[in-house]
């Protein structure tokens, strides 16, 4: 017959135990380097970024402009139909104000980051990016924004060719 557990195993260590080798251990630093093939859709997307343009793919079956662009539509599972330039303006769908960098280290100047849906693509289709020229009091969901591009000569064909999205000014397209 079985029994309800009474003892719960596990020996806790402190950070000091680990970092100052109070227990025996082996350390390892892997060197894993990659060269990812960008593929058909992302290659064109990156090349267009270098020109200061955003591009999507049309799915004629679903009557949608897919962004980021892709060569097949995951919903109807057919190849997408053609390339369509879209705008570099959009709407903040959500955002965060981050006091952490990628290694969970604390930073004092926060990063404004979020999802921006792009005008000209189908509803709610967008990318993650930084926001600039905003404060924690001005940024809000629903804010209209526009890409702040790097100068043409500094662009490399990367998502970072857009420095950030900034508030759309009145009368601006």
């Amino acid at each position: 017959m079985g029994q309800t557990p009474q003892k719960w195993p596990g020996i806790e260590l402190s950070n000091d135990d680990l970092l100052n080798k109070k227990v025996t251990q082996t350390r390892y630093h892997p060197r894993a380097k990659f060269s990812w093939s960008a593929g058909e859709a992302m290659s064109r997307f990156l090349n267009e970024l270098k020109e200061g343009r955003l591009i999507g793919r049309e799915c004629k079956h679903c009557n949608k402009i897919l962004f980021p662009p892709r060569m097949f539509c995951e919903q109807c599972f057919k190849p997408t139909s053609k390339w369509v330039y879209i705008k570099d303006t959009g709407t903040i769908q959500t955002y965060s104000i981050s006091y952490l960098d990628k290694d969970a280290k604390r930073i004092t100047n926060p990063i404004y980051v979020g999802v921006v849906s792009i005008d000209g693509a189908s509803e709610k289709m967008g990318i993650m990016h930084y926001f600039g020229e905003v404060t924690k009091d001005t940024i809000h969901i629903g804010m209209k924004v526009k890409a702040k591009w790097k100068p043409p000569l500094e662009r490399t064909g990367s998502i970072l060719d857009i420095e950030y999205f900034r508030p759309l000014k009145e009368g601006e397209q």
């Binding site: 060197r31 990812w36 093939s37 960008a38 058909e40 990156l46 064909g157």
Partner: peptide, 9 residues
């Protein structure tokens, strides 16, 4: 025109 993207883990 095809791109690659370098990185590490």
């Amino acid at each position: 025109k095809l791109r690659r993207w370098e990185g590490n883990i």
